[in-house]
């Protein structure tokens, strides 16, 4: 089975974020592979170990993003590709990613490389958009299942489990297809030092848009952030009074309406 894994480098969850003014954000230079993507990589490696085939990891990002590909190599990916082009700089920044532009690039990569299965994380931990995977499947016109918690390969198809709205569904999906990984899918491994050192020395090649036959004018930012705010870190407490039942109902209302937290 030929498996592609899409990975993204995102700011570390502990990186500090600061608003320089209302139209520019600064993120501390600490990056990591998005958590859900680590699950996708692990699942790809397990499928390969069980059924044979190859695992190829792909990312769209500037030079520093090559690090997540090195990690994929260290974990056992057979090959990696970093896609970058000056034309992508405005749509893939430290703080925001234009999903459709990235999906276009990834769909082109997938066609270029060929595949039976694409795995990616359910969403990236920075923007939580959960859009690039679905969009890529739409552009490739292949079936997809998001947020899977179990994957089993069969002849020409794949059987997955997905939790949604309190129910667990078992879904059969014809190949080629795209799956996105949800928490609980697996426990990612630690890389062997031998492979780490090899990966550390590997040359990570970048492919540009021309290599993928994408016109630069196909890359435009469909959604643009125009201003930012960084909420004050200090919390100020609102005490909700009343009998338990009333206080509880009021708490639920406020969590929903004021914070969209439920």
């Amino acid at each position: 089975m030929k498996i592609l894994v899409f990975v993204k480098q995102v700011p570390d969850t502990e990186a500090l974020v600061e608003a320089l003014d209302d139209s520019s954000l600064k993120v501390e230079e600490k990056f990591e592979m998005s958590f859900f993507d680590t699950l996708a990589v692990e699942e790809a490696l397990r499928l390969k170990e069980k059924h044979g085939g190859t695992v190829t990891a792909v990312t769209v990002g500037p030079e520093r993003a090559g690090e997540v590909l090195r990690t994929c190599l260290a974990l056992g990916a057979d090959s990696v590709f970093r896609i970058w082009d000056e034309a992508l700089a405005p749509v893939v920044t430290d703080v925001f990613t234009d999903s459709l532009s990235v999906a276009r690039v990834l769909a082109a990569v997938a066609k270029h490389l060929g595949f039976d299965l694409i795995l990616c994380g359910k969403q990236a931990l920075d923007d939580d958009a959960a859009a690039v995977g679905v969009m890529t499947a739409a552009l490739l016109e292949i079936p997809f299942v998001t947020a899977v918690t179990s994957v089993k390969a069969e002849e020409g198809s794949i059987r997955v489990k997905q939790k949604r709205d309190g129910a667990e569904r078992e879904i059969k999906c014809e190949l080629p297809a795209l799956l996105s990984a949800e928490k609980g899918l697996n426990e990612p491994r630690q890389p062997q030092v031998m492979k780490v050192m090899k990966a550390a020395r590997a040359k990570i090649d970048a492919m540009d848009l021309a290599a993928l036959k994408i016109q630069a004018d196909a890359i435009i930012s469909t959604v643009k952030p125009v201003s930012f705010t960084v909420p004050d870190k200090a919390r100020s407490i609102s005490i909700i009074e009343g009998e338990p039942a009333d206080a509880a109902a009021e708490l639920v209302r406020r969590l929903r309406e004021e914070r969209q937290a439920l």
Partner: peptide, 8 residues
């Protein structure tokens, strides 16, 4: 290489 190793 050292940077990558440190991170891993």
């Amino acid at each position: 290489e050292q940077k990558f190793f440190q991170k891993v």
